[in-house]
Amino acid sequence: MFPVYSIPEGKEAMVYSISVESITKYLGKTLAVDHASFNVQEGIVFGLLGPNGAGKTTTIRMLTTVLKPDEGTAKIRGYDLVKDAVKVREVIGVLPEDTGLYDRLTPAEMLIFHGKIRGMDKKEILEKTEKYLSMLDLQANRDQKVGTFSKGMKQKLALIRAVFHEPEIIFLDEPTVGLDVMSARQIRKLISEESGHGTTVVLSTHNMWEAQQLCREVAVINKGKIVSQGTIEALEQLTHEKDLEDVFVHLVRGEVTE
């Protein structure tokens, strides 16, 4: 068994954007997340890596207040996940597994809806709409219904929605899965830029190359359990593997090279 990252001695929990303590979730009778604990430092891109069905989406759904943990607790920017759910929602932006976009709305209308719900003013909404739609090459589609968009366009718009209100933490569940090279690259670029501005990013992915490019730290989850957490370099040293993909395979299989 690999060591699970723990809060270094002398550091307060609040230095972390996210502190997760032993959260557990059953989906029906299936144990989807099993006493998972990890911490995410402020301002980094944190990768939540795991094979399909490992519990990544359920973990993100709990951390974004969509699901309540059956056991355990977590703090997001110091706010309790259950007791301060609305406060938690104020500081997060989410790109879920399914984009969750309204097909009959235009991108501009979608962002107005999102901005207004988040308490943004008219000027800010308009400026950011122009900025992000231009940045991700969607300006020409501004007045087109989202239902007519390609998968890549929808994914880009959903990412804009996640960062639109400048949240302190962004949760991205498989943001580039199934996308063409150009769209995936644009999305990765925006993730890097957001992180560069001090935003904490939690990235759920099973694309190891992408995680290697973007993440400073990762946690590997398998069968609902966090099997290890740390910087990519630390995990490579621990497993004596050369890149993240090998580290991942190693950790998921539970094999340790001495």
Partner: peptide
């Protein structure tokens, strides 16, 4: 699946 996004809003 648009309801899930609603649930993440404040």
């Amino acid at each position: 699946r648009t309801l899930e996004v609603y649930l993440t809003m404040p």
